[in-house]
């Protein structure tokens, strides 16, 4: 089922969207939502998917308090009206 989902962007990606902190995408899974966002906003899409078409591996999303990793995006379903918080995996000290 396809549904509208709000996605909160990490601060560095807001510069790509002219300062917009939250964008709307559609899809029944996180993978579909990100694919929809990339189609709507090609500049943002560069940062979501690599050359092989895979979600960038350091991106993670918080959905209903659960941390979803890139390898789980394709299968993880989201409900209509869901809010995702996009961030990057912890790295470094």
């Amino acid at each position: 089922m396809s549904a509208k989902v709000q996605v909160r962007l990490p601060p560095v990606l807001r510069t790509v969207m002219g300062g917009l902190g939250e964008v709307e995408g559609e899809g029944g899974t996180i993978g579909q939502v990100l694919t929809d966002l990339a189609a709507r906003h090609p500049a943002l899409g560069l940062h979501l998917f690599d050359e092989a078409g895979s979600p960038r591996r350091n991106i993670v999303c918080l959905h209903r308090g659960e941390l979803i990793r890139a390898r789980e995006f394709a299968a993880h379903t989201v409900e209509p009206g869901a809010r995702l918080v996009m961030t990057n995996a912890l790295a470094g000290g």
């Binding site: 560069l46 940062h47 960038r56 350091n58 991106i59 990057n88």
Partner: peptide
């Protein structure tokens, strides 16, 4: 470039 978000 960004290790998280690639090149642009």
């Amino acid at each position: 470039n960004s290790p998280n978000y690639g090149v642009a």
